[in-house]
Every structure is written in C-alpha cells, then in structure tokens.
Design a protein around this nucleic acid. Structure first.
Length: 571
RNA sequence: CGGGGUGUAGCGCAGACUGGUAGCGCACCUGCCUUGGGCGCAGGGGGUCGCAGGUUCAAAUCCUGUCACCCCGACCA
C-alpha cells in the first residue's frame, strides 16, 4: 500500500462530535467517517482492520467445526411474525415495505431466518449437530447510538446458530464456543473476561458475555478476587449480605420529614446512615400489576433481577400520578407498610431492624421499622445490583472487584425458544418428532475493532495489536532524493515478497508530518528510510510502543521484520 | 421519547446580544525557501452562513417552522 495513492485523510485536530478515544482516533487516523447517526464509511485502513478481525473469527469458527453461510439482510415479516418478535422487538427493528406493500425488516439478528433454513432442510438426528455462522452487516435502530463504532446502528456482526438433538449436546457446543471465543479474542490481542449475563430480549436459559476491560465501557461487571466467578452487575448473584442490626427493637414511630424526599435528604435530616433505610420503588409490569420493590437505602435495584423474579417481560418505574394515587402521598414518601400492592424485597432488607421507610403520607417517614415484625407477606429475593466489595456467591472467601467492560461477544443457550414455535423439528432415533435444542453466538466485529483501540493507545495515537493492524510495517521515506526513494522501494518490495503487509509513506511531506501520522495510525513496526542511516548502510527500526529508534543494517531488515511480525502473529 | 446544545470553506472555530452583504487558524493550489517530530515567506482558490417561510430598505445576525448532528436522561422517589 502506497500512501500517496491511498485515501488516508488524517486529521490534526480532534473531531468535534467524538467523545471516546476509539472514535476520535479512528476518525483522526482516517479510518472511518460518519455518514449518518450511528452509520459509518470504512476507509481503506479501517476496512483492513475489520477484515483482520473477520479473518480471525472465520479461521477459528471454521476450526471449531462451524460452517459459514450468508443469509439476507432484508428479511420477510412472516418469519418474524411466526416467532412473535415482529410485535415484540419494538422500534429497534427497522421495518420497510417493498413495492407490493409487503412487510420486511433489516435483520438485527437472524434466529428466525436460520431456523427456517434448518427446519426445511434438516430432518434427522443423523444430520445433527450443525453450527452455521455468517459475517454480515446488521441494523438496529438504537435509541441512542454513540461512541462511534461502539454503539452504531449499522454494524458488522458474526452470528452463529447451532442445532442439536438434545440439551447435553447443545451444552457441549456452548463450551466449544466459549473456548473458540477465548481463542479469537486472544489472537486479536485483547484482554477479555467471560462473564455471566442476562438472557435478555433474545431469550433462553444461559448466557455469557465476553467483555473487553476498558474504563470507557458501557457495561459494569464484577469478578471475584478469589475464584473464577464473574458476571454483569445486572445479573451477578450476591453472597449473603450482612445488614447492621440494632440490639433491640423499638416500636414504630412516625416522624415529620418536611420536603425531604430522597434517601440522601432524609438521611441527613434524621442523621441515620443510608444502610438503615429501606427504599421503596414502585413498578408497573406488562401484566398491569403494580409492585413495590424494596432495597436497602445504599443499594441499587437490578430491574433485570426484578423482572426475572416476577416472571414478567418488562417492568417500568410507576409514573408520579400512579405513585400518588397508590400511596396517598407525594412522590418521595412511599413505604411498604399499609401499601395496597404486592411487595417484594431484596434479601439485604430481611434482617433490618430500626430502619427508616416512607410513611405513605406527605412529609412523613416511619422509623424503627423491624423487617421481621413489620413487613408481613413480603417475598424476599436477590434483587440488587452487585457492587465492588460484595461477597462472592460461589466461594466463601472472595469479594467482588468492579470493572467496566465493552461487550464484544456473547453466547446464548436458547433451548427450544425458536425451534418450538417455528416447528424446527427432527426425527430422533426412536422415530419421535422433537424440537431441536439451539444455541446462538455473536461477535461484534466492528465493535471489537473499536475496543482494541480503547485498550491499546497512547497520547500520540493508536497502537494496534499486530494481528489487527491495517499493515504490519510502516515505511517512512524520509526525504525524496533518489537514493532514499530507491532504498524505500526496495525494502517495500522485499517485504511484500516475504508476505509482510506494508504501508509505504512515499508522500512529499516533511518528516515531522509523516512521523506524526505514523504514530496516529499505529502500525506496530515503523522503519525510517533516510539519507543519514543509509550512509551507515542501515535503516531505523522503531516499534510503535518504543520511544526510540534503533539502527537496523539493511541486509538484516527484511529478516528482522519478518521475525518480529511472525512472532506476534503466533501468539 | 424527555431535557440541553450546535449547525458559518475540507477540519477546528469567531462573527449573532447591538441587522449594513463574511472572517481567523489549519488544510488546499502557485512560486521561492526549507527538509529527521505537524518549517518560513509571498501570492491565490474555495462559503446556497443546514433548509423553508416571515419581519425589514437591508438578515449569518431578529421571529416561526423544519431537518441534521452532539451531550445528558429515560432504573434508584
């Protein structure tokens, strides 16, 4: 690749619309350009990175026994109506009509299409298991796309779907995919964590996410500092939580708390720590039910856990009118005592004694609440978000560390969620018609590219892991005289012949500009070819991560670079 | 969807309050000069001021509408 003939529009200044480092650097390095909200052009360098990720994914998926297919991006509504998701998926599903007014959608994921394919062509247990994957552009009309490629609306995803005769075999494949994913991200040079996650909108029984650890990540995860347990905070189970217990129980007391609505305000007003409060959160469910959920004042509720516990599809905070109608008090004074609603509570509430709750009366709270004595008929469950320091549920000694992460991959055990309603069945050995057990496995290709930058950059620009870099070697032709040009050309051609990918900066620019651009673009190995070193029969070798360049005899240059690149790629 | 913000040259911005016909830096083109971490000098090209309407002798500037993009929120009473 010769710079002079390439479209690599680097920017000296930061783009005004970028917030996170990967977005800024990809725009500045001339890799992507925004076309519309959440929709991007990939320029030559950006596309090369995307292709690198795809290639690693393909190699490892193929190695695991999966087969690549390609399904349509535009999918007919009927399949989605059959699974029920045409109505459920909501506004994220981009819908359109063809010239005959028939309904279609731009696929955000392909469970329906692949299940339709398999049910038509797979009949017997002898043809199972099968794992089909594709690499394709997806479209999800996100409420709020942001952070460049991190949360785009159109993005490239690898999605795989496996079909099995029984759940044991499906679980086996789940483990195979977990291993495959570990290898994929390792080869990409990324540090990831596999964490338990909610099964969410896709549904199913069991799920893990692969998170690239990065402070800018949108997801919060916890991991045990003593064992292997790690999970998304929304999902993370929590070991037994001790709550402060007062020595003796006192009778309930109503106190005036004028205008003090939040835990913080009441806590300061009564001089009681938030751990002694019980927060009462009123929720509406899709069944039209109103539920009060209680968590300790210093804890936060996990709506996902609440949803799971209630067995409903969605929960939403009640609007102020509903709250006032139900409690007979202004917002801020809701409490569980005397409330005409189903009450559920987080386990940490169970042993609270001498706690503070809203009185269901404007400007009043109740104190000296004893959960065991005063909260009758309450169902207890693990309902809160995990946080750093919480006890691990799996081992006795560990506590949680908290991290932020970028979800680059996920694996789901779907069971028969799609195969049953869509009648994707096979005949088992006994001649019995049985729905297939399914798993699905996704990797955000474009997001992985962005996550790699979040994890690998410095003040001067990107520092690509060799496996994902748009090229392995960046030759900077320093100066334009014939000797220099010839030496640079020779090295360029020799490296290409040795199978190394090279960007040759043959522009007529001053050296400073070329060096700055090289750092910005982040190709892992840079070679400066200039008159000074040539006099010593050398070129300068500067790995992107190193501060200084070293002389490299021209005679050894190709071999040294080939060795360095091969060593990196073998990791 | 709610709240806030911004749209002026390829990029980053000023001009707007107080209306008078558009400017700065970078980039780009030409010449000279220079050439090892975003050189210097001189000259030059490039703008429907997001779009539509309105007010006015006159609108980038005021008013109305609209579109686009960005940020915060849409779970913690």
């Amino acid at each position: 690749m010769r710079y002079r003939n390439s479209l690599i529009p680097t920017l000296k200044q930061e783009p005004s619309d970028a917030e996170v480092v990967s977005h800024k650097l990809m725009v500045r390095a001339g890799m992507i350009r925004q076309v519309a909200r959440g929709i991007y052009d990939f320029l030559p360098l950006g596309l090369r990175v995307v292709r690198k990720v795809e290639q690693i994914v393909r190699e490892e998926m193929d190695r695991s026994g999966a087969q690549e297919i390609l399904m349509p991006a535009i999918c007919p509504a009927e399949l989605w109506q059959e699974s029920g998701r045409w109505d459920k998926y909501g506004k994220e599903l981009l819908r359109m009509k063809d010239r005959y007014e028939r309904d279609f959608c731009f696929g955000p994921t392909h469970e329906e299409v692949v299940t339709d394919l398999v049910r038509r062509d797979v009949r017997s247990y002898r043809e199972l298991p099968i794992n089909l994957y594709q690499v394709q552009s997806k479209f999800r009309d996100e409420m709020r796309p942001r952070f460049g490629l991190m949360r785009g609306r159109e993005f490239i995803m690898k999605d795989a779907y496996s079909f099995h005769a029984d759940s044991d075999d499906c679980n086996r494949e789940y483990e195979v995919m977990a291993k495959t994913y570990r290898r994929i991200f390792e080869r990409c040079g990324l540090s990831t964590r596999m964490v338990e996650s909610d099964t969410g909108a896709i549904g199913g029984r069991r799920a893990h996410e692969f998170q690239v650890l990065a402070d800018s990540g949108e997801d919060a995860i916890v991991s045990c500092n003593a064992c292997e347990y790690a999970a998304n905070v929304e999902k993370a189970e929590i070991g037994a939580t001790r709550s402060p217990v007062a020595a003796t129980a006192s009778p309930l007391k109503k106190v005036r708390t004028p205008g003090k609505r939040t835990i913080e305000e009441v806590s300061a007003f009564l001089s009681e720590p938030p751990e002694r409060f019980i927060k009462t959160l009123l929720y509406l469910t899709n069944r039209g039910e109103t539920v009060a959920a209680l968590v300790r004042g210093d804890h936060e509720i996990s709506e996902i856990k609440l949803r799971t516990m209630l067995g409903v599809e969605w929960v939403a905070m009640a609007d102020p009118e509903t709250v006032e109608k139900l409690t007979g008090a202004a917002v801020g004074f809701a409490g569980p005592i005397g409330l005409k609603a189903r009450v559920v509570a987080d386990e940490a509430v169970q042993h609270l004694r001498s706690a503070v709750v809203g009185a269901n009366e404007t400007d009043h709270h109740l104190t000296d609440v004893d959960a065991q004595r005063d909260l009758a008929g309450v169902t207890y469950a693990d309902l809160r978000l995990a946080r750093a320091g919480d006890p691990c549920p799996r081992c006795s000694s560990g506590n949680f560390d908290a991290n932020r992460g970028i979800e680059v991959g996920n694996i789901f055990y779907l069971g028969t969620k799609y195969s049953a309603p869509m009648k994707c069945t096979f005949l088992d050995a006994a001649g019995q018609e049985t729905p297939m057990e399914m798993g699905c496995y996704g990797i955000g290709i474009t997001r992985t590219a962005a996550a790699a930058i979040e994890q690998n950059h410095d003040n001067n620009g990107i520092i690509w892991p060799t496996a994902l870099a748009p090229a392995h070697v960046h030759i900077v032709q320093v100066g334009t005289d014939e000797n220099v040009r010839n030496a640079a050309d020779t090295l360029y051609n020799d490296l290409l012949a040795a199978g190394i990918e090279v960007l040759l900066d043959d522009r007529e620019e001053r050296p400073g500009i070329k060096f700055k651009d090289a750092d910005l673009i982040g190709i892992p190995y840079r070679v400066n070819v200039g008159a000074k070193a040539l006099e010593r029969n050398a070129v300068e070798f500067k790995p992107r991560r190193e501060a200084k360049a070293d002389d490299l005899p021209i005679a050894n240059a190709v071999e040294t670079l080939v060795t360095a690149v091969r060593r990196d790629l073998a990791k």
